[in-house]
């Protein structure tokens, strides 16, 4: 039974995704959890996940632990306002972590629980290959997308 379980790497700033998956999909997945990009890339190497489940907003992650160049972003997009750039990095951290994982050759299908506009999801798929999104926590849909 356990041999059939798929390996799932969850990346989030809290524990909600992990709790949900363990409670409702625990029999189908062997789970590892990372709370920051560096930890995620390390686990991706060691654990070789079959699928990724990513939070989008990392509001509880301190600014200095966020992945992404806040100064560059502030200059390019926010008129030099670093606070806005940091806020943006927090709000979009899941996609930035995914970029890191793909750069480390982790190409497992990725799932976000977020209702991305269609064009933005298409952009993510163009950038990162297999990327899926479901609008809300739904165990059945999650299992289906993650191939369990």
């Amino acid at each position: 039974m356990s041999a059939a379980r798929r390996r799932l790497l969850i990346v989030e700033d809290g524990h909600e995704y992990e709790e949900f998956v363990r409670l409702f999909l625990g029999e189908r997945f062997e789970v590892r959890v990372a709370h920051a990009a560096a930890e995620a890339t390390r686990l991706a190497r060691e654990f070789q996940p079959d699928a990724l489940l990513l939070d989008l907003r990392f509001e509880r992650t301190p600014a200095d632990a966020l992945e992404g160049d806040a100064d560059d972003l502030a200059q390019r997009r926010f008129g030099g306002d670093r606070a806005r750039a940091l806020r943006h990095l927090q709000d979009q951290q899941g996609t930035i972590v995914l970029a890191q994982l793909r750069a480390q050759q982790c190409h497992a299908p990725a799932l976000f629980v977020h209702d991305f506009p269609a064009r933005r999801l298409a952009n993510l798929q163009q950038l990162y290959g297999a990327v899926h999104a479901i609008p809300a926590f739904d165990a059945k849909a999650m299992a289906q997308v993650l191939g369990a």
Partner: peptide
């Protein structure tokens, strides 16, 4: 929409569905 309606209410609904089927732990 993201933090409250999708994450918290959405997760609670999942349990409601299970409770409705008498399957919750």
């Amino acid at each position: 929409r993201h933090e409250l309606l999708k994450h918290r209410v959405g997760a609670a609904r999942e349990v409601l569905n299970l409770l409705g089927d008498g399957e919750s732990s």
